[in-house]
Nucleic acid binder design. Sequence first.
DNA 1: GAGCACTGC
Length: 726
Amino acid sequence: MGMERKRKVSLLDVVDKSKITKINSGGFSSSVASGSIIGGGRGINSWTGRPYSQRYYEILVKRRDLPVWHQKEEFLQVFKSNQTVILVGETGSGKTTQIPQFVLEAIDIKTTPNKRKKMMVACTQPRRVAAMSVSRRVAEEMDVTIGEEVGYSIRFEDCSSARTVLKYLTDGMLLREAMTDPLLERYEVIILDEAHERTLATDVLFGLLKQVLKNRPDLKLVVMSATLEAEKFQSYFDAPLMKVPGRLHPVEIFYTEEPESDYLDAAIRTVVQIHTRETPGDVLVFLTGEEEIEDACRKITKKVAKMGDKVGPVKVVPLYSSLSPAMQQKIFEPAPPPVKEGGPAGRKIVVSTNIAETSLTIDGIVYVVDPGLAKQKVYNPRVRVESLLVSPISKASAHQRSGRAGRTQPGKCFRLYTEKSFQNDLQPQTYPEMLRSNLANTVLTLKKMGINDLVHFDFMDAPAPETLMRALEALNYLGAIDDDGNLTKLGEIMSEFPLDPQMSKMLVVSPEFNCSNEILSISAMLSVPNCFVRPREAQKAADEAKARFGHIDGDHLTLLNVYHAYKQNNEDPLWCYENFINQRVLKAADNVRQQLVRIMARFNLRLCSTDFNSRDYYINIRKAMVAGYFMQVAHLEHTGHYLTVKDNQVVHLHPSNCLDHKPEWVIYNEDVQTNSNYIRTVTYIRGEWIIDIAPHYYDLTNFPLCEAKRVLEKLYKKREKEGRNC
DNA sequence: GAGCACTGC
């Protein structure tokens, strides 16, 4: 809109926003002093008591163009006469920014039962960036300061105040709030946005809110979703459904005639074909992982270069989460200009993981290439392993991907599979995360919220009984719940940590091993992505740098070394660069550590360290690790392979490990199933420690027959003898 | 001797 001013005469003195009529005329010249008013006073913003700004009216005009505005009255009517409403609106309907504002208009903000704070409207988002950016936008639309009437709350950052009446927050954050405020009494209306994504937190909130609504007739719920699976929501919540059209340009879909045997090759060919045959417009290609993406980028660049100046220049940009923000910014750069004036147009080609499906939006994309695959988390409760598998996406995902071609103009989507395969092979929806995860942490959270009967908890999609059983069993071994399934004092403290139960356990008991400072650092390092940078052009130097941090007893201790070195070097970015350490990651770890320290303090858990020169310094740390991770132990068999204890799965040390030998017993942080079955982040421990620290788990009376069992039997006998000698 | 979809507390 630039400096152009809108005629505001008919807007003046209007407070009821719904009655404002749209003004389309060209308006006044920009020589009018900014903020000056023609023809009288302005409407007063009832939130701030100040007159609305120029900008408010400018945005209002655009807001009124959004599809949801055409159904505002309809929405308000349904909202007023029902406790729960389901709203389906596709991309571009404006639901995320407008519905919460409609809701604010429809209710009187009351004070909370304790009379000191106002009650609020909450709107959840699955991602932090969305919560932040949407709330900023809405604050602007409502002409208030962010953090005052409109705010957001995400991990590490609460940007809200006593004045806040509308708060955007991550679904995980609302779940955390429910732990201390089970009836969510500070809210008058809760809006669950992007419900179709079925994140773990949103799914738990579904079940929880269904109960809360029964106990709080004054609470209202709005569930917003982008897909028609909303009918499932409708019957689950027994609520009316309202549909709002989206606003996207048409996207033409193409399928292959025959199935493609090599999707990577097919994707590259398709991109090159688009570049040579189609009209100008940027391309977005979906692939599955970092290595594949880098590989594809090189191949595309090479192929196009070979074609010479018959075709326009291309800018090929990779996109995945572990890329630095600076590199991620490249996706927003414009396509290159023609090599010479009048020559063939340039094109930007973004090669991306799933991150471009939901988390990042790139305008200007006209062509989408979709091989129909993604790395997805799967969970096997039998061996308690979560792993990433390349698997077919759902129809809903394919739809979302194709929509990325129609944001700014009509587009085309090339699906590298047959139409028949789309119809017959793809699941309608992505499996909810709840059904693909280890639920130990979720079960602990539910227990903390007083939900004891998990089998009869009203999940929208109930997890497999075996998954729930495995979770309960693990929590019981950790001492978080007793044999009757009730939360213990220890479990209550554990539930307060934003960590997996094994890690919370390790942290809570670490003062007993006189090493909580070190366990805090290790936990923080394990909670962030890999901190080691390994650029293709300097792999050897990077490996050497990493080796300098190496600790012969294991990767956990190597991580501790890195953290200590980072602090000793005053968090210096140059030091990080020279040592191939990702500074962003270390900063994040420091942030996590501070949060964990605050929680430790809340429960009077002692911060302590063993004397660094004592021979027990590292031994104590490793023992504390055993206290949390005794269920993730592997034993070296005579064959030279490791077997996981009890589950008896053959596993290999991940080649990234820094041990200088193969110890008989190791503890590991995660199991990664790729080409082979690897255990990653591994530390050497002693067999004696596991029977001393976790005898209940290492009770040999119900232990599968294996080499480890025989070794442990001997260790128990040795302990017995020692006992007699004492 | 290999890899890290993406979120979230």
